[in-house]
Simulated scan of single mutants.
Amino acid sequence: METNGTAPETPHAERRQRTPLAVTRERVLGIAEQLFRRNGVQAVSVDAIAQAAGIKKMTLYRCFPSKEELVMACMDQWEAAFRTLWNEARDQYPDEPARRLLALFQLVVGLVSKPDYSGNIFVHLMTDYADPEHPVCIRVREQKASLRADVRTLLIKAEASDPDQLADTYCLLLEGLLIAARTYGFDSGPVRNAAAIAEKTLRQGCGSRAFPPEPRRFRRW
């Protein structure tokens, strides 16, 4: 039998195609984010994440050297998701700061009104990490402080009579909404009425020009 001078390939000689580490990292991050959001950080082990991702534990540690770094990477995603809502509200009302804050609140209402809403992840983190000086807790507080500062800046532009107090009220309403959707239910009265309460609060606290009349739309017959 003639051959071409090369040994035939065998299963043992074939090379397995390896998934690039960056792709594996993204898969691990997505799975961890879902598990953390559903069950809380402390309840989800590294072994459980690796098993769900279909990889070995050492492969996971090549992507994320520690569980804490994985949590921090998930926080990057959660903060980016909220920033997307912030930017969407800004695009809707670039020159109307009070309406922008109301639009942001309404977007969050839409988010928590979904049946698969699993609660405020940042509240979960503060519960899971008992030490207030833990880097995760510090980062959560920094994120909340940054949000309040941004809200206060917009309220000053909206000529609020007391921007500090109104910023505190707005942030409390927002925080309460995120928790109420989990405790009362996504279709409960507190969730359905939250946007109306926020609007009333903003209208009472902002200047008279903060909510200019919406342009009238005439129907063509």
Rank of each mutant, 00 (worst) to 15 (best):
I31Y: 00
W86Q: 14
K56H: 14
E14K: 13
R83C: 03
E33K: 10
V151I: 15
L102R: 03
Y129E: 12
L174C: 03
L155N: 07
D128P: 10
T19N: 03
I197H: 05
P65N: 09
R16C: 04
D168F: 04
V112M: 08
H124Q: 14
P11E: 09
A81S: 05
H12D: 15
R16N: 03
G185S: 07
E26R: 13
W78Y: 15
N39W: 08
L85C: 12
L60C: 05
G207E: 10
E68I: 04
R220H: 02
F36N: 00
A89Y: 01
N4A: 15
V140E: 06
Q106P: 00
A52Y: 02
R15Q: 15
V151G: 01
G176I: 10
P94R: 13
S66R: 05
G207R: 13
T201Q: 11
D168P: 00
R192T: 12
R83G: 04
R25G: 08
T183P: 01
K56D: 14
Q204K: 05
Y117N: 02
I197N: 06
Y93H: 15
C63S: 12
V109S: 05
N87T: 05
V71P: 06
I49D: 01
D91K: 10
V112T: 12
V71H: 06
Q51G: 01
T6S: 14
N39Y: 14
M75F: 01
M126K: 14
E33M: 04
I31H: 00
V136M: 00
C74F: 00
A50F: 05
R139T: 04
L172I: 02
T127P: 01
R148Q: 15
A196I: 08
L70A: 02
A13R: 15
P20N: 06
Y117E: 01
L154I: 00
T169S: 12
E69N: 10
M58Y: 03
A130Q: 12
F36C: 00
L147F: 14
R62M: 02
A98W: 05
